[in-house]
Amino acid sequence: MDEHAPLESAGIEEPLDLVRLSLDERIYVKLRGDRELRGKLHAYDGHLNMVLGDVEETITVVDVNDETLEEVIRIVKRNCEMLFVRGDGVILVSPPSRA
Protein backbone atom coordinates (compact mmCIF):
# COMPACT_ATOMS: atom_id res chain seq x y z
CA MET A 1 0.00 0.00 0.00
CA ASP A 2 1.28 3.39 -0.99
CA GLU A 3 -0.09 6.06 1.30
CA HIS A 4 1.02 9.68 1.35
CA ALA A 5 -1.44 11.31 3.71
CA PRO A 6 -0.22 14.73 4.93
CA LEU A 7 -0.12 13.59 8.57
CA GLU A 8 2.14 10.71 7.73
CA SER A 9 5.22 12.93 7.79
CA ALA A 10 4.36 13.81 11.38
CA GLY A 11 4.14 10.09 12.06
CA ILE A 12 0.43 10.24 12.84
CA GLU A 13 -1.58 7.58 11.09
CA GLU A 14 -3.65 6.01 13.81
CA PRO A 15 -4.90 6.72 17.35
CA LEU A 16 -1.99 4.98 19.05
CA ASP A 17 0.45 7.37 17.38
CA LEU A 18 -1.01 10.04 19.64
CA VAL A 19 -0.10 7.86 22.61
CA ARG A 20 3.44 7.76 21.26
CA LEU A 21 3.56 11.54 21.47
CA SER A 22 2.79 11.20 25.20
CA LEU A 23 5.93 9.14 25.91
CA ASP A 24 7.91 10.70 28.75
CA GLU A 25 4.85 12.83 29.64
CA ARG A 26 2.45 12.47 32.53
CA ILE A 27 -0.79 10.95 31.30
CA TYR A 28 -4.20 10.09 32.67
CA VAL A 29 -5.52 6.55 32.27
CA LYS A 30 -9.05 5.43 33.04
CA LEU A 31 -9.38 1.75 33.86
CA ARG A 32 -12.15 -0.77 34.40
CA GLY A 33 -13.30 -1.12 37.98
CA ASP A 34 -13.55 2.63 38.71
CA ARG A 35 -9.79 3.09 38.73
CA GLU A 36 -7.78 5.99 37.41
CA LEU A 37 -4.03 6.37 37.08
CA ARG A 38 -1.85 9.41 36.68
CA GLY A 39 1.78 8.78 35.85
CA LYS A 40 4.63 9.24 33.43
CA LEU A 41 4.36 7.07 30.34
CA HIS A 42 7.54 5.07 29.74
CA ALA A 43 6.28 2.43 27.33
CA TYR A 44 3.17 1.06 25.65
CA ASP A 45 2.24 -1.42 22.96
CA GLY A 46 -0.65 -2.11 20.60
CA HIS A 47 -2.74 -3.72 23.37
CA LEU A 48 -2.27 -0.56 25.48
CA ASN A 49 -0.13 -2.47 27.92
CA MET A 50 1.89 0.28 29.58
CA VAL A 51 4.67 1.02 32.01
CA LEU A 52 4.04 4.14 34.09
CA GLY A 53 6.37 5.87 36.56
CA ASP A 54 5.51 7.86 39.73
CA VAL A 55 1.96 6.61 39.57
CA GLU A 56 -0.97 7.83 41.61
CA GLU A 57 -3.92 5.46 41.54
CA THR A 58 -7.40 6.68 42.45
CA ILE A 59 -10.04 4.07 43.21
CA THR A 60 -13.66 5.07 43.63
CA VAL A 61 -15.44 2.77 46.06
CA VAL A 62 -19.18 2.92 46.67
CA ASP A 63 -20.14 1.67 50.14
CA VAL A 64 -23.79 0.89 50.70
CA ASN A 65 -24.99 1.29 54.27
CA ASP A 66 -26.77 -1.97 55.21
CA GLU A 67 -29.56 -0.25 57.12
CA THR A 68 -30.24 3.01 55.33
CA LEU A 69 -29.17 1.66 51.90
CA GLU A 70 -27.44 5.00 51.51
CA GLU A 71 -24.55 5.04 49.05
CA VAL A 72 -21.37 6.61 50.33
CA ILE A 73 -18.60 7.29 47.83
CA ARG A 74 -15.09 6.78 49.14
CA ILE A 75 -11.92 7.71 47.26
CA VAL A 76 -8.87 5.53 47.87
CA LYS A 77 -5.46 6.74 46.69
CA ARG A 78 -2.33 4.65 46.27
CA ASN A 79 1.11 5.45 44.92
CA CYS A 80 3.56 3.28 43.06
CA GLU A 81 7.00 4.13 41.77
CA MET A 82 6.91 1.89 38.69
CA LEU A 83 3.88 0.03 37.41
CA PHE A 84 3.12 -2.29 34.50
CA VAL A 85 -0.54 -1.95 33.51
CA ARG A 86 -2.21 -4.66 31.48
CA GLY A 87 -3.93 -3.13 28.46
CA ASP A 88 -7.18 -5.10 28.61
CA GLY A 89 -8.30 -3.00 31.59
CA VAL A 90 -7.71 0.34 29.87
CA ILE A 91 -10.75 2.44 28.92
CA LEU A 92 -9.05 5.64 27.82
CA VAL A 93 -5.71 7.41 27.75
CA SER A 94 -5.43 11.18 27.83
CA PRO A 95 -2.69 13.79 28.17
CA PRO A 96 -2.84 15.28 31.69
CA SER A 97 -3.68 18.80 30.56
CA ARG A 98 -7.21 17.64 29.90
CA ALA A 99 -7.50 15.52 33.03
Binding site: L31, G33, V51, G53, C80, E81, M82, L83, F84, V85, R86, G89
Partner: peptide, 8 residues
Protein backbone atom coordinates in the same frame (compact mmCIF):
# COMPACT_ATOMS: atom_id res chain seq x y z
CA UNK B 1 -3.23 -9.68 35.79
CA UNK B 2 -4.24 -6.07 36.44
CA UNK B 3 -0.88 -4.59 37.45
CA UNK B 4 2.68 -5.61 38.09
CA UNK B 5 4.49 -3.38 40.57
CA UNK B 6 8.12 -3.16 39.52
CA UNK B 7 11.35 -2.28 41.32
CA UNK B 8 11.94 1.22 39.91
Amino acid sequence: VRYVQLPA
